[in-house]
Design a protein around this nucleic acid. Sequence first.
DNA 1: GTGAAAGCGCTAACAA
DNA 2: TTGTTAGCGCTTTCAC
Lengths: 344, 344
Amino acid sequence: MSEPRANLPRPAPAPSVSIAAVARHANVSVATVSRVLNGQQVVKPATRDAVMAAVQTLGYRVNEMARNLRTAESRLLLVLVPDVGNPFYAEIMRGIDSVARQHGYLVVLCDTGADVEREHTWFDLLRRRRADGAICLDPDTVQHALAHDNAHLAWVACAEFDPAMAVPYVGIDNRLAARDAVQHLLERGHRRIGLINTDETWLYARQRKQGWHDALTEAGITPRADWCINTHSLDYAAGNAAMTQLLALAAPPTAVFAVSDTLAIGALAGARSLGKRIPHDVAVVGFDDIALAAQTDPPLTTVAQPMRQLGETAVQLLLDLLADRGRPPAHVLLPHRLALRASA
Amino acid sequence: MSEPRANLPRPAPAPSVSIAAVARHANVSVATVSRVLNGQQVVKPATRDAVMAAVQTLGYRVNEMARNLRTAESRLLLVLVPDVGNPFYAEIMRGIDSVARQHGYLVVLCDTGADVEREHTWFDLLRRRRADGAICLDPDTVQHALAHDNAHLAWVACAEFDPAMAVPYVGIDNRLAARDAVQHLLERGHRRIGLINTDETWLYARQRKQGWHDALTEAGITPRADWCINTHSLDYAAGNAAMTQLLALAAPPTAVFAVSDTLAIGALAGARSLGKRIPHDVAVVGFDDIALAAQTDPPLTTVAQPMRQLGETAVQLLLDLLADRGRPPAHVLLPHRLALRASA
DNA sequence: GTGAAAGCGCTAACAA
DNA sequence: TTGTTAGCGCTTTCAC
């Protein structure tokens, strides 16, 4: 055993100074330190200053794991995203993150691949108290499968939802938005209007198809089945392939509505590689209004979703739920708008 | 006070069953339950089964907050990203997430905006034990500012780093990679080769500029100052503007090397809006090889970074550090390659 | 206005 | 092989 060595330079600041150490140093009780730390007004200013001084010199930081055990909350929120790489979700994430942080919550991005099994393992984190709540962006079919087992957990749906579920959600009116987009094409004189849709496990896919159908029939046009392609993913390549397929038709569409900007941008590439000029040979309308949409050639006309606000609202709904678990689930629909650019 | 009511249907499964409840139900001690839960082999099979049965019927889930307080780890990792929307980072995130999860860690995406102040608040989470470690993707200048205060915290640098820092890092040889890219342009006969660079607070920006410079001087060409544009962001619009500026030169470059695919894609748009054909009028080479690079018109020739592997390696370095805080910082350089497509 | 002490749910050292 | 018990660091009654 060696002597206690007081004045050796430490290689690193002592990583563990507890509330007890601060109390000792300031000659008060741990309770008082806790009060100061939590900004309770009862503490006498002089005492408060002494505590703060001790905190300062000791370099104390609260151990939030301990605090959270005591308060029984983790201050962590989960965001369940089917595809992290999709810019649409990235923007929603930004909205979520900003308001979550304002309220002292941390956000964990969870990649689900729209898979029920993986969803389940993420929901397990809620059961194990690793997280306080979740925001789910997965297909309504997936959500539906989840709903029963997780009814007592705190979660909300964002952008995609099953209206029949007793879960709060925020989204837009997809059917109406799609109808607006197709109507714009009709106004430009198009009569043969294709649809590049995605997997119809998504409610939004079914709803936007409805909107496309609505607009066409209202104009006295009978939608043909071969005008409609269902892709299995949302990536650029899928949009490219779908457009190629559409243009191979005997009487190809003169305009195409894609249910996602990524698909639409891929479609642009597909049309171009066939030597088509846009919008002269084919007009294209997308959906979402991601940042890239303004930079394509030509710039993409698209239905703008309020992505950021979608995320912000979702957190708000979740926090409301956390504050009052008994409240009836709120359902919010946000407005969309048509961003007119050169592609249609 | 009312009587205890035993058999009322609960609106939601009791959210709080502790290890003690399981112990009671299985007629064993909490220690035994804990042993079973943690897979310790000492427990007699019969006892083990009894415990598992109790866990099952009670629907018990471990409270990880309590466990973590005890084991003094949060099992949370931070990823400090300057711009969540950039697809380059999204792919690195995927790599990080997959191996972190394999090791039982959760990953929190932290948007820093490459800002030192915001970085500080994120590092605070480490001090408060909210997280065990961090992976930093911010500019080396930012990292440098951080290094002193946070020397005792567990963090590693990824993609961007200051070689002089005593912090583990993984990245590529940016100078060499840029040189390769420009050399490709030279081989195609170009002599006036522009550079769309970003803010030189980034080490990679300075290094890639060096590489551009190397290749040019080796070919006996004197790089002109007006061939080089520094943008203030990495978004598509910035690349567009830079290209416009380059093409306005009296003797504009016949080829352009952009230090990021997003910049390069914006540059493509910029050239096109001026009626230029690619690669005929201007050739363009990018950097990163994001998914979109293969879908542009024409498809983008670019330097491919092993993004996923970058992320995977970064986690590995961090876990190594967590396991042995004393070890000397490891420095890993991963190989790059040139993805040849039609734009150059 | 402040302190003593209980306990959040868990793991691990020590005993039996 | 199992049980008892002491904390992990904090918040929060309840006294004083």
